[in-house]
């Protein structure tokens, strides 16, 4: 498939799923009335459903999907390892810890955006720690090790918060939040997380050329006049911004950043730079599709997006490994 054909088909898929996400929901509205309410509606319940519930949900689904797919592809390209994923640098873990602390202490209920803001604060602390630990010039190995250490620490502290939680309501609230979901998010979530994710995407796209060159190894890349130090900084900051913001508003959604680059790699001839935009578009489609599925599969049980994603993602990943095991043998 030529890059243009791939770009077109992924875009059509994404637009289709975005529209489907707007049109599918428990309110059971017709296509015509939904669209009228979305665009022209004012102050009636229909317009409220479309503009305040479904639109932010669809936008967030797309933004988060792009963030996770893009960050996953960039991490795999930088580490030259198909097992890398955005959570590896510990930012999603620390963002989750920030949000969990907000839920535990009750700060989350104090004002509308307290929860995602605490998540972002956690992400910022996480990224500062990783930059400090891994240093500006270290190898990719120190980055992985620092990421593992921070993830482990954030995980342990999250477990501690749950452990010491005084009441079962807070505990269940925390556990459900951590499963990841796009339900009941508002436009203010979009305005908070969207710009941060956009900045993150911009930073990640600066690494594209170096990711291609890294196919030849770090030495050859430096000798091609590209700076590994700068690339690493843009990568860490970009992944932290996009994934930190995504986790802060939606909780932990796994497997997108791992599986989507695998699905897209054969379609772009395995080129790391092309894989970036292909995974961004593919990630958005995958999150939107999964978010539609949680509304269709068990509409009354509030199936969590993160749970469904893992349920679909893990077998899909196994299948991909099975299919490509020859290549990595």
């Amino acid at each position: 498939m030529t890059p243009r054909a791939l770009f077109t088909s992924l875009s059509v898929l994404l637009v289709g799923l975005f529209c489907a996400s707007l049109l599918i929901g428990p309110a059971g509205l017709g296509i015509g009335e939904s669209l009228t309410a979305l665009i022209a509606g004012e102050d009636d319940p229909l317009a409220l459903v479309m503009q305040e519930i479904r639109l932010p949900r669809a936008i967030l689904g797309a933004l988060i999907g792009v963030s996770l797919g893009l960050a996953g592809a960039a991490m795999q390209g930088y580490l030259r390892n198909p097992l890398a994923e955005p959570g590896l640098i510990g930012v999603s873990g620390s963002a989750a810890l920030g949000a969990v602390l907000a839920l535990q202490t009750g700060v989350a209920a104090s004002f509308a955006l307290a929860l995602p803001l605490s998540g972002l604060a956690g992400a910022v602390i996480g990224v500062l720690l990783i930059l400090m630990l891994a240093g500006p010039r270290g190898s990719s190995m120190t980055l992985i090790l620092a990421g593992i250490a921070i993830s482990a620490l954030a995980g342990a502290l999250t477990a501690l918060v749950l452990n010491l939680s005084p009441n079962p309501f807070a505990t269940s609230e925390i556990v459900f939040w951590m499963m990841g979901s796009l339900a009941d998010r508002s436009m203010s979530h979009v305005w908070l997380a969207g710009p941060i994710m956009l900045v993150g995407w911009g930073m990640i796209s600066l690494t594209a050329r170096t990711l291609d060159a890294l196919t030849l190894g770090e030495d050859a890349t430096s000798a091609l006049g590209l700076s590994l130090t700068a690339t690493r900084l843009w990568l860490v900051l970009g992944v932290a911004a996009s994934v930190g913001a995504a986790t802060s508003v939606a909780g932990a959604i796994g497997f997108v950043g791992l599986v989507v680059p695998h699905l897209m790699r054969p379609l772009v001839g395995a080129r790391p730079a092309r894989l970036l935009w292909a995974s961004a578009l593919g990630g958005a489609s995958m999150v939107l599709a999964a978010d539609i599925a949680v509304r269709l599969v068990l509409p009354d049980r509030d199936l969590k997006l993160g749970v469904l994603m893992a349920l679909v993602g893990a077998p899909l990943f196994l299948h991909l490994i099975y299919k490509t095991r020859r290549e990595f043998a």
Binding site: T215, L216, G217, D219, A223, A270
Partner: peptide, 13 residues
């Protein structure tokens, strides 16, 4: 131009 001893081609391109 530099040709390192380590022959690395990380992806199936």
């Amino acid at each position: 131009a530099w040709l390192p001893q380590q022959r690395e081609i990380a992806w199936p391109v």
